Amino acid sequence: MTITYSCIANGRVILAELALTRGSYQDAVSSVLKLVLLKAEKKTTARIGSYVYHTLLLDGITYLCTTDNPLDVTVPSAFLDEVSRTFSENPLMFQEPFPPSNSTVADFQQVLGRCMMKYNQSQGEFMISGLKSQVMDVKNSMSQNIDKMLKREEKLNILIDRTNNLQVATKAFQKTTTKTSKKIWWRNYKIIIILSSIFIIIIIILLSTNVIPV
């Protein structure tokens, strides 16, 4: 991936720009700056032709760069962050009436050039850094998922233990109820036997004493 063009704009007015390759960027950049103003979002990415335009909008100033790789967003993002910091720390351009003087433009063209060369030469390091970041994100995501699974498993085990305890309690209750029912039945049976025996004895006595005629 190569950063082929970069610029700084106030609204749709380009304050400073630099292109490392031949080609006409003006029409595409004008369309992208218009899109940035319409969307008013901090970061915007647009693909026009064979190039991808990345922008960073801070305090009304648009920082823009063009790359030839639509898949890489790490390097352009880092480039725009550094350029924006450089310009915010050196507000010479913003102290002068717009448009800025030729000397100011030349100074910031040099800044753009240094940053473009730096990030074009160091893109391998940024790719490795980006891959490491992605690996760490995946690792963190997996760790979070494992923690969630362990928590769900723990809750499931608690639920299973409670279910087992409930089943044991239910069986114990059923056994207790069965024993109680048998005891009550046996007690009632004894009472019936005793009352029947007493009734028979009373009948026999009454018959033997002729209280009840035979």
Rank of each mutant, 00 (worst) to 15 (best):
S103F: 00
G49C: 02
R114D: 03
K183A: 11
S30F: 10
N210S: 12
N90A: 10
E41C: 13
S129T: 06
D137Q: 15
K43E: 10
V111P: 02
E82A: 08
A19G: 14
L80Q: 14
I203L: 12
Y189M: 05
L80W: 13
T67C: 10
L71P: 03
K179S: 04
F98P: 12
T86W: 00
L112T: 00
K190H: 09
S122C: 04
E17Q: 14
L33M: 03
L156G: 14
L15I: 15
R114N: 13
S88R: 05
E125Q: 13
F87L: 00
C115F: 07
I201M: 07
G11Y: 00
R47F: 01
E17S: 07
I158W: 02
M93V: 01
Y53P: 01
I184Y: 10
I191L: 07
K183H: 07
T86F: 00
F126L: 10
L56C: 02
E125L: 09
S24V: 05
W185K: 09
S88H: 06
P97H: 11
S122T: 07
S208E: 08
Q109N: 11
I200F: 06
P213Q: 03
T180N: 06
M136Q: 13
F87T: 00
F79A: 15
T66L: 11
S50E: 09
M93G: 00
T176F: 02
L166Y: 01
G124Q: 04
F126A: 10
K175S: 12
F98I: 05
K132H: 12
L64Y: 14
Q167H: 14
V211W: 12
Q174S: 03
I202E: 07
G49A: 02
V73M: 14
P100M: 05
I146G: 04
D147V: 04
P100D: 09
Y119S: 03
K34Y: 11
E82R: 09
S31L: 12
M116T: 01
F199G: 06
Y51I: 11
I8C: 09
K148L: 03
T177K: 06
I128T: 07
V168M: 08
K183T: 11
P213C: 05
V105Y: 05
G124C: 06
F126C: 04
K118T: 14
C65N: 06
I200W: 05
F87A: 00
V29M: 14
L58G: 00
P70K: 15
D107V: 10
M1R: 02
S122M: 11
N210C: 12
L20V: 01
Y189H: 07
I201T: 03
G130T: 04
M136T: 14
R47K: 13
I128E: 02
Q110S: 07
I146E: 00
L38A: 15
A28H: 05
S129C: 09
L37C: 08
E154W: 15
I205G: 06
K42A: 15
Q26R: 11
V75N: 11
K43M: 10
D161T: 04
A19W: 14
D72N: 06
V52H: 05
K190N: 14
E153G: 13
S77C: 09
S88Q: 04
P91Q: 12
S208I: 10
I3T: 15
S30L: 07
T104L: 12
A16L: 06
A9M: 06
A19E: 12
I160A: 06
K182L: 13
S30K: 03
A9G: 09
D161Q: 09
V83P: 01
A19V: 07
L206I: 01
Q121F: 01
A169N: 14
V135P: 01
